[in-house]
Design a protein around this nucleic acid. Structure first.
Lengths: 121, 121, 121, 121
DNA sequence: GTGGTCTAGACCACC
DNA sequence: GTGGTCTAGACCACG
């Protein structure tokens, strides 16, 4: 799996990690039982402090997305994909709605908005 | 003009104020020479600390969007609308790209994405 | 007499007025017994609020530089020129020292400093 | 580097900090990549509120003089020295011109002015 | 530990 | 009344 952090979009780094792991499980990029990268490895890969990754993994465990395998690491939990597919739409929709709402309030006409969307998709 | 703060979209409050004033000037909701609400008034209206509004206004002055009228308040500066219309597209695009990027990474197919967009617009 | 206000040098407006009246008296530009412009007139001339001029005149009265002539206005007081000539050097020297001190701390070599001074004088 | 605040020269504290950091970078007292004192540390050293230092540092970041190293502190940015050397001359000149202008208006003859300057340099 | 943000409330200069 | 500055102290994310 490939993750990438955007340091300037307002979202906390640990939150971006939580979201991306969730999305990866939802899309099947991470299968049930598959091990996620170790805290240290992912931290290095993202150029981020291990504590930040650890915090994200802690939340994913609390969510039931990941589960610890003693002495080995963290793997995708059994019921996770179903749950993540539900979360995914909700999480994405939230951000999308927020941006579209701002675009609407900004007085941008919907034609221009659609144009920009088509360019960017 | 009416401004509104979303306390849970990740954007700093002062930044949301900066963006909304910029957008209001871009759309003509705030005309050149028009006074913006006073720091204290807007702070009360948004249920936010005056310092937070002051910080937003300070940045808008630094951007050349607002200018001080001594002892009276802040007004929209002369060249502001043109500049704000450019800023608006850039600012919205940035957030939009960030969300669409995340949606893409999440494995969401573009058909579904377009469907959601159409629902939400 | 010609006064001029610099709105961006850190000095309070009323203070600039106080200083300039003091300097005018010191240099003889304002003679003993001469009337200073009325609050309203000077305020208009400097594009400044009358309260600000009034405050400056109040301080100048407290200093003994100006004195009220009932029903007529303010005139330069008897002992003022002597006192103002003393103040002038002190007031100018204070600001000068402050700037030269900063220039020195800034690591600017004195040769360059002298060069700039010669240009600007 | 040693910074020092003059609480009675009219310049805002945050502005004095901005100027002194700029000057230190210009003179090489702060090298590229070097960390500036932490907000809290400098605040303690100058007997000033941390927010005031933070504001100065924020402006220096906006100027491109400093850049953040996440969780670590602020360091002098790559292109800063060149830019700061230019700023230095401009910033000093502005204050100098303001004082010399006042001295000139005050009716002080240039001979006396030069004499004072020579004493003080 | 670091900076970033926000709150609460003060004083000042100016209108 | 206005904005500008400063203080004091809180919480957060990150290292």
């Amino acid at each position: 799996m490939f993750f990438s952090i955007d340091f300037s979009n307002g979202l906390a780094i640990y939150d971006q990690i939580v979201r991306q792991v969730t999305f990866a499980v939802a899309s099947g990029g991470l299968a049930v039982g598959e091990m996620v990268p170790s805290v240290r490895e992912l931290a290095k890969q993202l150029a981020v402090n291990p504590n930040t990754v650890a915090r994200a993994y802690r939340e994913l465990q609390a969510n039931g997305v990941l589960e610890a395998v003693r002495g080995t690491g963290l793997q995708v939990a059994a019921g996770a994909p179903k749950q993540c597919r539900q979360s995914r739409l909700r999480l994405l929709r939230e951000r999308l709605v927020s941006v579209l709402h701002e675009a609407h309030l900004s007085g941008l006409d919907t034609a221009t908005l659609r144009e920009i969307l088509n360019e960017e998709i």
